[in-house]
Design a protein around this nucleic acid. Structure first.
Lengths: 331, 331
DNA sequence: GTGAAAGCGCTAACAT
DNA sequence: ATGTTAGCGCTTTCAC
């Protein structure tokens, strides 16, 4: 491609100074109507697009916020990304997405990358509990950040998370009151606070009811859960659980998949409950009973908090969102 | 946040010139081992991150490619986004995502935005057939672009799409050979070439078989399809279709949802076939019969083409990907 | 209301 | 091997 037109080119054609072009296109400063029109026409004719790179270089505002997510293959996070886009746009910012690909070790690099690109703030949705880089970062931040959904084990930095332990207790208790005694819990990847807290809640509720907890690990992964739960279902010498509580909806879907595969019906044969309440399209036929993280509220809170941080309106943002039990058709 | 450290700060601390810092951190130019280490230590101590904005300002390479998608709520496109991330990363580029929110009118603005940010190339996955801005853009491009999946009606610009008409014929013919005569087609939003071509294929195949086509419009939207198809199913005075062919998988899921809601089974009562072959998590219990767009191949082709364009290795990229019939459990 | 000039933080000649 | 210098394309004083 040929060299791109600059404001200088526009200035030459419009017979004004380059700073006048800047004034017209940024909408700042007084410019005579006629001059303005001449500039606009010239810009149009040359197919001029303001160079945002140069602009943010000068203004020291990148107008962008960095978002770190584990993956876009989990509906929970692709929905998050979609909403982040909407909200940041409302705040006249663009979102820069980075993915860790479900690998905690990739986190540090993508955060550094985002900082290098001079994002004005960081929304971190893939923090693992023991991330030492993040621990240090929270002590000496260069750019405001808020952890979303997942957080560090040390209670530092800014975060908006849901009360995962409580949500887990709610789910387990609900199954208990439905008469279930053998409740299998499918855990997520224990590298993340959500998995830790949810497991804790499940154990707490089971202990309280004097029931024996039974746990398998699905790692927040569809395929792994499908297999691991399948193994449980196929083990003939053990008592089958009457209910399965999955640590997130993605794994709950895998559970249902494993069930269907064996001609077992969710609820009719084995109750299934998830966690997240993803507003994912197949909900009408799956109709999953789940714990809502109230994702939209959580995200909005995190983002508003981040903007408050950016604008110096606050120093800390720490919010716990109360989860909700959503009873549908699978439990 | 305090002013960020610059290479100048690092230079001062390391007692070298600023350009030496640049040489060390960009890995270009010869620097003595010892000097290099001194710079690295200084950078470390100051928490220095190279300002990519300034760097790309100077090098005139943004190291980023712009991606326009209709939405991240449709699994087809969130999967696309996920893969784009992987591929662009392999090419040492970052992806800048913009969404049209399924609104063709939003397209022009987001493309301009991306150009303003000086992306090196554009992957356009949300082009509508009659977009006059894009038509003009293709004649006088400022930045290389390739349309992905959807394209203009005028045959201009660069594109990688699947043979949607053929795919549609394959789906319809398959249903016909299965003995179906009353096949309902659920169309997508006719603003997009995919919807136009798929409808054409369906009609062609039906005509060929001497069957009467029957079409409703789901606009590529889950909720709308759920309702529209529900209406058909509830219309008592009409003959029910024995098979439903949905213009994409998202709508096929809505069809199955509407079926399930009425205690009808896909295949057992009414056959369902989709289009896309999204590798979406619930596939094991839904087990949707569909037409594969071979998304991965299509995307890879589009992106490789885009990079070829960027590097001046080619002038045009136009590829039609042959679709595949994937027979599973719903038809 | 408009122009001239400085400078954002880098890289890339060009010197030495 | 390292320092000096000149911009990249803007915004923003400061003059006039």
């Amino acid at each position: 491609m040929a060299r791109m037109t600059t404001s200088r080119d526009v200035a030459r054609l419009a017979r004004v100074s380059q700073s006048t072009v800047s004034r017209v296109l940024s909408g700042k400063g007084n410019v005579r109507q006629e001059t303005s029109e001449r500039v606009m026409t010239a810009a149009q004719r040359l197919g001029y697009y303001v160079n945002e790179t140069a602009r943010s270089m000068k203004t020291k505002k990148s107008k962008s916020i960095g978002v770190v997510l584990p993956s876009l293959l989990n509906p929970f996070f692709s929905e998050t990304a979609h909403s982040v886009y909407t909200y940041t746009k409302e705040h006249d910012r663009t979102m820069l997405i980075e993915l860790t690909m479900d690998n905690p070790r990739a986190h540090q690099a993508v955060v550094k990358d985002l900082i290098g690109r001079r994002v004005e703030g960081l929304l971190l949705g893939a923090v693992s509990t023991g991330d030492t880089f993040m621990e240090e970062y929270c002590q000496h931040p260069v750019v405001p950040s808020v952890m979303y959904n997942r957080r560090l084990s040390k209670d530092i930095g800014n975060w908006v998370v849901s009360d995962n332990k409580l949500g887990s207790i709610m789910a387990t208790t609900y199954l208990l009151t439905q008469g279930h005694r053998d409740i299998l819990y499918v855990s997520g990847d224990m590298a993340y606070s959500t998995a830790v807290d949810r497991l804790m809640g499940y154990k707490f509720a089971m202990d309280n009811a004097g029931k024996k907890p039974r746990v398998v690990c699905g790692n927040y992964d569809y395929v792994q859960t499908f297999e691991v739960v399948g193994n449980v279902l196929d083990a003939e010498h053990f008592r089958q659980p009457t209910a399965i509580f999955a640590g997130n909806d993605l794994m709950a879907l895998a559970v249902i998949g494993a069930l269907t595969n064996r001609n077992l019906g969710p609820k009719s044969d084995i109750a299934v409950i998830g966690f997240d309440n993803i507003s994912w399209p197949a909900r009408r036929d799956i109709n999953l009973t789940t714990i809502s993280q109230r994702q939209d509220l959580m995200l909005k809170t995190a983002l508003e908090g981040l903007f408050d941080l950016i604008n110096g309106r606050t120093h800390t943002v720490r919010t716990v969102i109360k989860p909700e039990l959503i009873i549908r058709g699978t439990a």
